[in-house]
Computed example of a mutant assay.
Amino acid sequence: MSSQQKALVLLKKQGSFELGSRSIPSPGAGQLLVKIQSAALNPVDYKIKDAGIFVTQYPAVLGSDVAGIVEEVGEGVENFGKGDRVLARGKFTSDFAAFQQYTLTDASFTAKIPASESFDSAATLPMGLDTAVVGLYGDQFGARITPPWEEGAGSHESKKPIVILGGSSSVGAYTIQLARLSGFYPIITTASPSNEELVKGYGATHFFDRKLSGKQLLAAISDVTDDPIKLVYDAISLPETQSVAWELLAENGTLVLTLPASVEENERKGRRVIQTFAGTDAAQNEELYSSSWAMVEKWLSDGTIKPNKYEVLPNGLEGIIGGLERMKLGQVSGTKLVAHPQETR
Rank of each mutant, 00 (worst) to 15 (best):
M1N: 08
S3F: 11
L11Q: 15
K12Q: 15
K13N: 15
S16Q: 14
L19F: 12
G20Q: 11
S21K: 15
R22C: 11
I24W: 09
S26C: 02
P27R: 04
Q31L: 05
Q31V: 02
Q31H: 12
L33D: 03
V34C: 06
S38Q: 12
A39V: 10
A40M: 05
A51Y: 15
Y58G: 04
P59W: 10
V61W: 03
L62Y: 10
G63D: 09
G63Q: 09
G63M: 08
I69W: 02
N79C: 11
N79E: 15
K82D: 03
R85Y: 09
V86Y: 08
G90R: 03
F92E: 00
A97T: 02
A98I: 06
Y102K: 08
S108H: 12
S108G: 04
K112G: 08
P126L: 03
M127K: 03
L129M: 15
T131D: 01
T131M: 06
A132C: 08
G135C: 09
G135T: 06
D139F: 11
G142R: 09
I145F: 07
P147G: 10
P148T: 12
W149N: 07
G152R: 11
S155V: 15
H156Y: 14
S158Y: 14
K159T: 04
I162K: 02
L165D: 04
S169R: 02
S170G: 14
I176T: 06
Q177M: 11
L178V: 03
R180G: 11
R180M: 10
S182H: 00
S182E: 00
F184R: 00
T189I: 08
T189F: 05
T190V: 07
S192E: 04
L198T: 05
V199E: 02
K200A: 05
Y202I: 01
A204K: 12
T205R: 10
T205M: 11
F207M: 07
F207N: 07
F207E: 03
K211W: 07
S213W: 13
A219M: 11
S222M: 08
T225H: 13
D226N: 14
D226F: 08
D227G: 01
D227L: 15
K230D: 06
V232D: 04
I236D: 01
I236Y: 07
L238C: 00
L238F: 15
A245M: 10
A245H: 08
A245Y: 09
E247P: 00
E247I: 04
L259T: 04
S262A: 14
K269M: 12
R271E: 11
V273Q: 01
V273C: 04
I274C: 06
Q275W: 07
T276Y: 11
A278Q: 09
T280V: 14
A283W: 09
N285W: 01
Y289N: 12
M295H: 13
K298F: 02
S301D: 09
P307E: 05
E311V: 09
V312K: 14
P314W: 13
G316N: 07
L317A: 04
L324W: 03
E325Q: 13
E325M: 01
M327N: 01
G334Y: 08
T335V: 15
T335A: 02
K336S: 09
A339P: 10
T344Q: 06
T344D: 04
